[in-house]
């Protein structure tokens, strides 16, 4: 997915925008671990998101989306490793992250 989009001259990075206007620029390949984002950015889909590489999430606030972006890099960094360290999540965010994870299908 990511390689095909790179071939078409698209940016290596995508921007994730939260409900309260925070923007997170993350690697496209890392973000595409989420099935929902991968579908949004699919160039065949003709979604707005695919054209300008900006995904707006109306249901996820900045604090949660920051953690989501952190996860994308955590997953990307550990993609070929045998011993994967645990990712820490503050307990107050766990329910919101759970819902975000279900929404993003990650």
């Amino acid at each position: 997915m990511a390689s095909s989009s790179q071939n078409q001259g698209l940016s290596k990075y995508v921007t994730l925008i939260s409900l309260d206007g925070f923007e997170f620029v993350v690697l496209r390949e890392a973000a595409c671990i989420s099935k929902a984002i991968a579908k949004m950015l699919n160039t065949q889909s003709n979604f707005m998101e695919a054209k300008d590489g900006r995904c707006v999430f109306g249901e996820i606030n900045g604090i949660v989306l920051e953690k989501v972006a952190e996860y994308f890099y955590y997953n990307y960094k550990n993609r070929n490793k045998e011993d994967v360290p645990d990712m820490e999540i503050p307990p107050e965010l766990c329910l919101e992250l759970l819902m975000a994870a279900d929404y993003l299908d990650t």
Binding site: E29, S34, N78, N80
Partner: peptide, 12 residues
């Protein structure tokens, strides 16, 4: 999902 397999747990 994505281009690679990972041992990392899912966000869920």
């Amino acid at each position: 999902r994505g281009d690679y397999k990972s041992r990392a747990p899912s966000l869920l």
